[in-house]
Amino acid sequence: MKHPGPLITLFAGLVLGLFMLSLNATTGEPVPSSRDRDRPAVSPSPSPSPPAPPSPSPTPPPAASPTAPTQAQAQVEFAGRTNDDTASVAISVRGDKAIAYFCDGRTREAWMRGPVEEDGDMHLTSSESGAKLDAVMTGGKVTGTVEIGEQNWPFTADKAVKPSGLYRATAQVRGAELRGGWIILQDGRQVGIVSRDGKPAAAPPIDPETGAVTVDGTQLTARPVVP
């Protein structure tokens, strides 16, 4: 009689296989083969993270608007006497421009204008009389020389605060062209000339507060000179 051991073993294997197939059908998971069971478990590779969106380009700063216009450049006035004390000189400076007036209060006068250099040097001239003023502005004052013809007058002009400074008036009076220039010094003294059709004479004083002046019976207004 043959030994039933192998048949029992085969039968047991068939039963186990049918059980595993039934279990796989129930769970939906594949039954690992004996070869797969013997392999070491391998962790699944993590899914790659989606690439980060590109950083937005930095927004450029808004274009700078044109510089707003600055306030009108301040005007600076200087007034003083020649070294020999025979005449007065007044200078109005605004930015890089200047206008000057030389006056002896009797018959000699000259209006001069020109540029002011960055270092304070100024070289002003008159197209009418050929007068010249060469000076330098430094330390709150102007020092230099006025030259008319063969004569020259060194001078010093200190900073002037209104009402001291330089004034001018023009008008037509009784058919004559009047042109007046006045210098009000820091101590209140006034020096001026009024020319009638080019003939100079001493000018009457002006009101330092309003600039009002009466010439030949006609009231005029002398105004501060602007370069």
Rank of each mutant, 00 (worst) to 15 (best):
Ala12Lys: 10
Gly13Gln: 15
Ser22Val: 12
Arg37Cys: 10
Arg39Gln: 14
Pro40Cys: 03
Ser45Ala: 14
Pro48Ile: 08
Pro48Tyr: 02
Pro50Cys: 07
Pro50Asn: 11
Ser57Met: 10
Pro61Met: 10
Ala63Met: 11
Ala63Ile: 12
Ala63Leu: 12
Ser65Phe: 07
Pro66Ala: 10
Ala72Leu: 12
Gln73Asp: 08
Ala74Cys: 04
Ala79Leu: 01
Arg81Asn: 11
Ala90Gln: 01
Val93Leu: 04
Gly95Val: 06
Pro115Phe: 12
Val116Phe: 06
Glu117Gln: 15
Glu118Met: 15
Glu118Cys: 08
Glu118His: 15
His123Gln: 14
Thr125Gly: 11
Ser127Asn: 13
Ser129Met: 02
Gly139Tyr: 03
Gly140Met: 02
Lys141Asp: 00
Lys141Arg: 13
Gly144Leu: 06
Gly149Val: 08
Gly149Ala: 07
Lys159Val: 08
Ala160Cys: 03
Val161Ser: 14
Gly165Leu: 00
Ala169Ser: 10
Val173Ala: 03
Glu177Asp: 14
Gly180Val: 01
Gly181Phe: 00
Leu185Pro: 01
Leu185Asp: 06
Leu185Arg: 04
Ile193Asp: 00
Ile193Thr: 01
Val194Ser: 04
Ser195Phe: 01
Arg196Gly: 09
Pro205Lys: 05
Pro208Asp: 06
Gly211Met: 02
Ala212Asp: 11
Val213Ala: 02
Arg223Met: 12
Pro224Gln: 02
